[in-house]
């Protein structure tokens, strides 16, 4: 029923932890060679080793995708060393929520830089290769899976700029989806609710802020989101899963 990803190449940003890491492992398990991108080289090398020891192929690329030049370099290295690009998972993300008067402007800039500009730079560099893969590969399809957030669907107090970046990701994904529909590049957005990653730890008090709104919830695991990524990418070519909103069952 679902397709194997043998002889395909995936590139995953934010691969050093959380949803990116779990997605890289899951795609490797499905047969893809995986380019791993993040700033923390040590984490990437460990993940690459884990994938290779399980019989897969991986390439660790330490880079800062908030630089357009580095982002383009990441895509170029993936294509030259792994032989193409069939699947892009944009999972790198930063969440720094809090009261807007007290929050340093720098925190907002950094969220825009990673969540929006980073995704934009990597995707821009990847597009020609994805179109080529969709036209020339045996599967005749390519995929971009963007990790947005339920905050990309619903804005809330003290989440202004994080929400703004995630609304942007959701909007860009839908526009790209329409633009590339006839060229067999599928664009999907996953909008997860609370997931047990480093996201809440990126700034003190964020989990407390979340639980004050939603109460204690049983968070999802990164592997739960990775399963959605795999479901999207391994669906038959004719099927485009464009959006999945996924929450902990007890998160209203």
């Amino acid at each position: 029923m679902f397709e194997k990803l043998d002889r395909t190449v995936a590139l995953v940003t934010g691969a050093s932890s959380g949803i990116g890491r779990a997605s890289a492992l899951r795609l490797a398990k499905a047969g893809a060679s995986v380019g791993l991108v993040a700033r923390r080289a040590g984490r990437l090398e460990a993940l690459a080793t884990e994938i290779r020891e399980a019989g897969g192929a991986a390439l660790a690329i330490a880079a800062d995708i908030t630089s357009a030049q580095e982002a383009a370099g990441v895509v170029a290295r993936t294509v030259s060393e792994l032989g193409g690009l069939d699947t892009l998972v944009n999972a790198a993300g930063l969440m720094l929520n809090g009261p807007s008067i007290e929050s340093p402007l720098d925190e907002w800039d950094r969220m825009v830089a990673i969540n929006l500009c980073g995704l934009m730079y990597v995707t821009k560099a990847a597009l020609p290769h994805l179109v080529e893969a969709a036209a020339g590969s045996p599967r005749r399809v390519a995929d971009v899976v963007n990790i947005s957030s339920v905050a990309g669907r619903f804005a809330a107090s003290q989440v202004a700029i994080y929400s703004a970046t995630k609304f942007a990701v959701t909007a860009a994904t839908e526009a790209w989806r329409q633009e590339f529909a006839k060229r067999s590049v599928r664009f999907s957005v996953i909008e997860p609710g609370a997931t047990a990653t480093e996201l809440f730890e990126q700034k003190a008090g964020q989990w407390e802020g979340f639980t004050s709104m939603f109460g204690e919830v049983e968070q999802m695991h990164p592997e739960d989101i990775a399963e959605a990524v795999a479901f999207i990418v391994t669906n038959p070519r004719r099927v485009a899963i464009n959006e999945i909103v996924v929450r902990p069952t007890d998160q209203a």
Partner: peptide, 28 residues
């Protein structure tokens, strides 16, 4: 194809709720 999506959501662990799933023909 839609049935597969239903099965996917039904098979998620109990703490995971696939709230919305938007699914189109690739060319639409």
């Amino acid at each position: 194809d839609i049935a597969d999506a239903v099965v996917f959501a039904a098979q998620a662990p109990a703490h995971v709720n696939v709230a919305e799933l938007f699914i189109l023909p690739i060319e639409q």
